[in-house]
Design a binder for these strands. Sequence first.
RNA 1: GGGCGCGUAGCUCAAUUGGCAGAGCAAGAGACUCUUAAUCUCUAGGUUGAAGGUUCGAUUCCCUCCGCGCUCACCA
Length: 503
Amino acid sequence: MSIEDELFERRLERAREMGSAGLRPYGRRFDFTHEIPEAIAQFSSKDATELTPDGPRVKVSGRVMTIRRMGKAAFAHLAGGGGRIQIYVRKDAVSVEDYDLFEKLDLGDVIGVEGYVFRTRTGELSIHAEKLTFLSKILLALPEKWHGLEDVETRYRQRYLDLIANPDVRGIFITRARLIKSLRRQLEERGFIEVETPMMQPLFGGAAAKPFVTHHNALDIDLYLRIAPELYLKRLIVGGLDRVYEINRNFRNEGLGWKYNPEFTMLEFYQAYTDYLGMMDLTEKLLATAAEDATGSTLITWGDRVLDFSKWRRLSMRDAVIEYWEGDDKPSANDVRDPDWLLRHGGKATAGESLGHLFETLAEPKLMEPTFIYDYPVEVSPLSMKKPDDPGMTERFEIYVAGMEIGNAYTELNDPQEQRRRFDMQLAMRAGGNEEAHAMDEDYLRALCYGMPPTGGEGIGIDRLTMLFTGTRTIRDVILFPQLRPEGEIGIAARLRDSDKPK
RNA sequence: GGGCGCGUAGCUCAAUUGGCAGAGCAAGAGACUCUUAAUCUCUAGGUUGAAGGUUCGAUUCCCUCCGCGCUCACCA
């Protein structure tokens, strides 16, 4: 029998003994008076003379993280609510039953403690225990207390363990939640309403990507997991919901990488009667405020740089290609407008796609400071309105920070005849081998035929923004359960089954 | 999918040129009523990711497979 099996058996046995002694190894409700961080905050300014046996009393609950036993007394640390507090248990200060219980505690058990607050000789705020309540039994061994859990695979597969063993992880997901909350609040304040549109779609669209396919049995139809909510949200604009937003998952059937996960969270918002410049102005405010709400500052540390979310640069795609060109043959303003030059240097099927490709390879990795890149070629922007004075280009921008694309926005194309031509262009590109070109969406065209007001629309990648706000270098660290290959047999059910058999 | 790398006790890590698989934490027994990586004494714990091969002998070398990481291509 391995050490782990022995441990498991022994702890199960302890849980059984506890049960037969009238205690609950898996407890019920525990009405605490303070969350641990709350207790620390409340008493941290009090000195030893103010914290006496007749002084403030608390009831807290948490997971036992350390125990230091010294014969007839012991110290332990309890973790909960994102904080940690020390408890002191003396044999002569608790009941005989409670001391027995305490002696049988394992690292990782969940307990409740009631007692008075005091300071130890070294000054640490602690709880002098007078009553203990057992709340939940640990059966498996906790990771090492000093190094925590380092194994990346285990951290992702067993995020609960990661959260127990590595306190910083909790902070990342709290920042993520604050970010989302801030964006919601700001949009609500501006009159946007939150909506939910289909994630299972008979046609996929709104982005250039390959979808996941699923099947509905009763209808006997294949459905696609959405790659974007865009076309549904704009149907709502047609319907008179002038400001809408949605925060939810998109699914794209592509490779994984440091900034790609097959499901990711996107905020999309649409505002009638504005355009891409309006969205740019709005974005500056949204993201500066979000940075402040999520992290406390508009200044974000990224590696050895500090990125200022209150200062934005605006640069056209063509100018970006010129500025970030590598080598001596730097192109001129005319070169980056010349289809022949673009096709020669970009190597794609069309001049527009070539410009896009040049931009992505040359400029994107170097765009560190918050930057708007504007004016996108029409070939890669099938849903954006053309620029009146430059019909090869559309009124579109993307948000770049730290070499990552964070968002995408444009003046929405609302002319159904032009939209039909764009769809036809996409169909031709699809026929030419581009698997990610748009399909024809007739209902969307029909909606446009009822008249969509001029509209600005935008999508912001929440996962990537969270990476920036938490200084995290991989998207898997900001997604609680990132996609992994299945693990295979774990064997815990069999272990529990075995120990359940009468001996 | 291609290339490179990694996989050793529950956790964090060692193991010389191919020569008896080790430590710390965690665990078990004992001592200890202000410790905090508590300390001290003792004990137990391994299918070295899996299967095969070379060899007197494989954690080490070779092959296949599994999982993970990095990277390239595609993608936000």
